[in-house]
């Protein structure tokens, strides 16, 4: 253990130090090769301009390199792999895609993903909005928001353990230690094995993600609500609008942009959801989703890179519209800068 801590400490120092070393070293070198400090003559001016040309690339270099290796190259490679066989050696055309769309499990995953996409962003945004509005009006609202927000800090695996415990099932007649079944039994019902309950088990998995992500929606929407000019609300009150009317006619329209942002952010997250399914059911009992299916094909039982890659591309295509929208937004923002 001590050795491990020492080793960890040294590797941490080396890793972080190397990074610092690069930036300091490369800039020091640049200043050395093209000196421009003291004098004011023509060569100093020329060197200064050279420095100004080179330095941005010193700053950007590592980021561009890492982005290329870890994201751009893999995207291209995955597209390539999706048209090749199991080991990535022989070109098979669209065979992987044909296989995918005729595969029962894949279709099940698409179906499940669609339900996730419909339910989770909507539920998170709805609860987020409701909680944000409610907590805005009470003195302990900040504390309440923190508590709703708290699951966001918990890992998906940790959340899975927490909820497995909630959903825990003991045979009939035994004392239930999962709170959900205990409540059911208390009210005279029969305990259920929630995570294998056909069709509805998907919803029990979704609840976990909703539980985690609602805090995100609450915080963002809460900030947007606070940004609404108070006088528009006062004007509405004077105009005789009731609280509910004020909510959906005055407040919601003013924060529509933020609602869209929250919705899309959670949508992207849902498409990538993996850990919850892996740890709760591993795709059994018809709870498979695309991300976990892909992981299955890639890494289990020897793996089939072609099929895994094809599924990855399907996820990618689903995300594409949001990506384009994002880029547009960013460009518009930059134009206004």
């Amino acid at each position: 253990m001590t050795a491990q801590i020492l080793y960890a400490f040294i590797t941490v120092i080396l890793g972080v130090g190397g990074c610092f070393g690069y930036f300091y070293g490369s800039n020091w070198l640049l200043d050395r090769i093209f000196p421009a400090s003291a004098s004011n003559d023509a060569s100093a001016v020329r060197n200064l301009k050279l420095q100004a040309m080179i330095r941005p690339w010193l700053f950007l270099g590592p980021a561009l390199l890492l982005l290329t290796v870890y994201l751009i190259f893999p995207v291209i490679q995955t597209i390539w792999l999706s048209f090749h066989d199991k080991a990535g050696e022989n070109f098979v055309g669209t065979a992987n895609y044909v296989w995918a769309f005729s595969d029962a499990q894949f279709r099940q995953s698409i179906f499940n993903n669609l339900i996730w996409l419909l339910v989770v962003p909507a539920a998170c945004t709805f609860f987020g909005l409701v909680i944000a509005v409610l907590t805005d009006r009470i003195w302990w609202g900040n504390l309440a928001r923190s508590l709703v927000f708290l699951p966001l800090a918990i890992s998906f695996v940790g959340a899975s353990v927490i909820w497995k415990f909630v959903y825990d099932y003991r045979g009939e007649g035994q004392e239930q230690i999962g709170i959900l079944n205990a409540i059911i039994v208390y009210f005279g019902g029969d305990p259920q094995v929630w995570i294998s309950l056909p069709f509805w088990n998907n919803f029990f998995l979704m609840i976990i993600l909703i539980w985690i992500q609602t805090g995100f929606a609450t915080v963002i929407l809460g900030a947007a609500l606070r940004g609404i000019p108070e006088d528009t609300l006062e004007a509405a009150t004077i105009d005789g609008a009731g609280p509910f009317k004020i909510f959906y006619r005055i407040m919601v329209p003013q924060i529509m942009g933020t609602i869209v942002v929250v919705w899309t952010t959670i949508t992207v997250l849902v498409l990538k959801v993996f850990d919850i399914v892996l740890t709760m059911t591993n795709g059994q009992w018809n709870t498979q989703v695309l991300a976990n299916l892909m992981f299955d094909w890639m890494f289990r039982g020897g793996g089939d890179f072609g099929r895994g890659a094809a599924i990855a591309i399907v996820i990618m295509v689903a995300v594409l519209p949001i990506m384009i929208w994002n880029i547009r937004q960013a460009n518009a923002e930059q134009g206004g800068h």
């Binding site: 982005l67 290796v69 870890y70 994201l71 751009i72 190259f73 893999p74 995207v75 490679q77 995955t78 792999l81 992207v268 498409l271 990538k272 993996f274 991300a291 892909m294 992981f295 890639m298 890179f305 895994g308 890659a309 990855a312 591309i313 996820i315 990618m316 995300v319 949001i322 990506m323 384009i324 994002n326 880029i327 960013a330």
Partner: peptide, 16 residues
Amino acid sequence: IVGLLVVPLQMSLIPL
């Protein structure tokens, strides 16, 4: 870079 924000991480795993 903005585009890469939404690339599913899982895509990168096999090539990497």
